[in-house]
Every structure is written in C-alpha cells, then in structure tokens.
Design a protein around this nucleic acid. Structure first.
Lengths: 238, 238
DNA sequence: TAGTGGTCTAGACCACGTG
DNA sequence: ACGTGGTCTAGACCACTAG
C-alpha cells in the first residue's frame, strides 16, 4: 500500500506508540497536519478516521483529536483476542494436532445450512486440536466449501490454512460473523480435549465470507472456559 | 441528524430491509446514486461506507456494491447481542431489581484501578439483578465515577441509567472496551442469581468512555451461561 | 474499452468549544 | 471572534472487472 492516508496513519501510529505524542494530549489540528504532510484536508481526515476506528484517538469537535491512553488497553493476552481476524486466532498456537481431514461428498443438513449450500456441493471437514502448555485446550472444527478449495493437505492444516488460502489460492477474506455461546461439552469435546472437570465449553461460531460476499467457511472453535478470553473495542455508531 | 449521507444511508437500508433491493444483487453505481440523490460522489461514498461498516453491502472494485443477505445474520436473539451499545444490553430486560445503590467514599484498590481514579475520587456502586422469565439470570455491577454523576436514584437504576446520563446529565458515551471471560461463580453470584446447578459464569467487563476520552464507568455483567449469547460482525481491516 | 469503485485535491460553509 | 472538527462539492486520475 502506498496510499497517502495509510502512510500518514502509520506515521502517527508510530509517534503514538513511541510516546512522541503522549497520551491525553492533542494531535496537531487537521490544518496543521495538512501542511506537515503536504496534502489535502480530506486525506488527513481519512487517516484520522482510521486512527479513531482503531482506538488510537478520540475526535472532539471544536477541540481537537485526543490521543487515547493505549496502555489502558494493553491486556495480557491469553486464550483469544478478537478482531485481528482468524489468522491470529487460528495460526499462532504453539502446537496443532490434525485429527481429521476429509472431503465430504454429502454434507448433512446442519452443515449445508451453515454454509448455505445445496446438496451437491462438497465440503472439506477439518478437525484440529490446539495444545497450549501441554494441554489440549481448543478444538477447532472447520468446514470449507470445496468449490473454492480444490485441494488441501494435512501439512497445510497443521501449519496455516489461512496462509495457504490467501497466498496460494488467492482467496481474499473480507468479513466474518461471529457468535459466542456457552454449551455443555459433547462426547467429542471430552475425547479430544483435556477438560479436567470443566463443565462448560465456550463455542465461537465463525461464518467467513470472501470478497464477493460469498460464504465459504464455517468454523466452530471450542474452548475450555478457563483459557478463553475475548476482547472487543466498540465505538458508538454516530 | 439531517446529514445528507445519513439520509441516503437510511433510505438504502430501508430498501434493503424491505427487499426492494434484493440480496446478492448490485446497488446502483455510485454515479447513478449521485444523480438519484442529487449530490456529489463523495457524499454517496460516505453513505456506502456506512452501509459496508454495518454489514449491509460488500463493495468490490470494478464491479459494484453487493447487497449482503441479511437473513443469514438474523439470529434469534436471546441473552445478549453486542454492539448496539450498552443501552440495549442494560435497559431492555423485562424486570430489574436494584440490590444496592451506594456512594463509595473510599473505593478499594481494584475499583480505583479499573476506573483509573485517585484515592480521593468517589464512586457510585450499583448492583442490579435482571430477571428473565421469572429467573434471575444476570447480575450487573456498575461503578460510575461520581465526578461526572452528582446524583442518582434507585428509581433511575430500576429504569434506564443510560437514558438519565444522556438525556438529563447530557453525558455522551463515545466508546467502550469489552472483555469476556468465563469464571467460577462467586458467593455473590450464588446468592443473587438462580444458578440452578450451573458451574460457570460468563463475565462481560465493560470500560465506558465519554466524548473527551475520559473513563467514567466500569461494569461487570455476570450471566448464567445458558442465557448468554454474543454476536459480532468483523470486517477485515483493509 | 467502458464502467466500476478507490484515492486525492482545493475550496466552501457549518456546528461546536474556548477564550 | 477564532480555531477546531464535520459536511459537502466538482472535478481529476488511478486500479480493477467485464465484455
């Protein structure tokens, strides 16, 4: 990306992170930034809107843009941190065990419904266990519409499915719908996970869409409750 | 709001919801919309960006704006649905019991830390139970920095704190940080809630900020796990 | 090649907060 | 009154998709 507003955004993010622009202070005004970066005000505003959306600043009309204290938001990250997309969630776990990788010719009604498929469409089913500190903590069940993914190997599943989809197959993920509920453990949970007496499972259901708004993946990520954590930053819709 | 782009946004939302513009079809192009609404292209683009951010459309360069099938996203709402801000979460429950309303002169270290307060600042503490279908399902513990809220009554707590803060005190909430974890029930949970044998509590911690980026409220919303549900729509950060 | 959305500009006027 | 951010305009050029 060589977009001007992206460059300005990154430049200001760096200044905030380094402490060059301290928390609770005001950013230079839009007109000053316009001069500094030798651009138009609308371009500056695009960069500032990006900063606001990402929780770096708070804009106040008539006053200026306040730098938010990011240290307040620096939680110790354990189980799960949201929004960085699935890449983070799926890939950065210490150890991954592939329990199942199969191409389903006749997906059952539940999967067809979740993936909005007709009976003729085939589906990849991938079941993986995530091990943290020697304990099996997370059970991931992935269902991928096969019309978008002609082939996939166990090695890819053990490493990074998303790197494969994006870099090899050139599929672009554009948005995802997430649903979090708490359920009783199933027999499958009990057999694949080290439950150690926990009576509940946190289930994150993910519906993943491609650039053309087509649904291509449904994922259930089943977490032991003690290792689960979800963080969310919500801005008031003006 | 009489903003042009808001009006255009609402107009298109209505057309999508009514089915006038069907799912998976293309919106008129930005140039067509520009003529239709007699405005400039940038204003149309603001409206379309709002639509994209709210999950109504997916924009594809060189192609157009695809209407996303909102029926796919129309989950039956039970316990909790995110993002509509706290108003929804806090206020629309059938029955609210106010268990405690007090002004704390010397907040303890935990609360001071959560609200980023010095020892001299006073804090309102509000504890409420939410009853759904005759069962006590949710325990809400609110801590409000008293410097922003000079007074509050039990009646206000039983109805809508947010309506009071926004309409009477003219406080504007601008953003919130949410954290979701699962914990063991405390003695307090057991005494205030109808746990019925559930072994876990879903805890939603909320840090609420005002327009000038000052932290003014910390809330713990403690849910019985069977009645908890969280929905999230995440767009890939481009 | 024509049409789409993405970026960028230079200017205008408005609503709001502070002095 | 002044400076701030919020909205809006009319135009330009670019990157991409499609026929």
């Amino acid at each position: 990306m060589t977009n001007k507003y992206q460059i300005i955004f990154n430049s200001i993010v760096d200044q905030i992170k380094s402490g060059e622009i301290p928390p609770n202070s005001l950013l230079p005004s839009e007109n000053e930034l316009k001069e500094q970066y030798d651009t138009s005000r609308e371009t500056i505003r695009k960069a500032l809107n990006l900063l606001a959306q990402n929780g770096y600043i708070q804009k106040v009309r008539g006053k200026g843009s306040i730098v938010i204290d990011i240290n307040k938001f620096d939680f110790p990250v354990s189980g799960l941190v949201s929004f960085k997309e699935l890449a983070d969630k799926m890939e950065k776990k210490p150890r991954t065990i592939v329990n199942e990788l199969s191409l389903i010719f006749k997906p059952d009604a539940y999967i067809r419904q979740q993936l909005q498929l007709s009976g003729k469409d085939q589906v990849w089913k991938i079941v993986r266990t995530r091990e943290i500190g020697g304990k099996k903590i997370i059970l991931d069940k992935d269902y991928l519409a096969a019309k978008y993914v002609p082939s996939i190997t166990e090695e890819i599943c053990a490493n990074s499915i998303y790197a494969y989809l994006e870099n090899e197959l050139n599929l672009k993920i554009s948005f995802a719908k997430k649903e979090i509920v708490v359920e009783e453990p199933t027999a499958e949970d009990r057999s694949f996970l080290d439950l150690e007496g926990f009576h509940n499972i946190v289930v994150i259901k993910n519906y993943v869409y491609l650039e053309d708004a087509s649904l291509f993946q449904y994922t259930e990520s089943r977490h032991r409750p003690d290792k689960f954590r979800f963080v969310d930053f919500a801005r008031r819709t003006q």
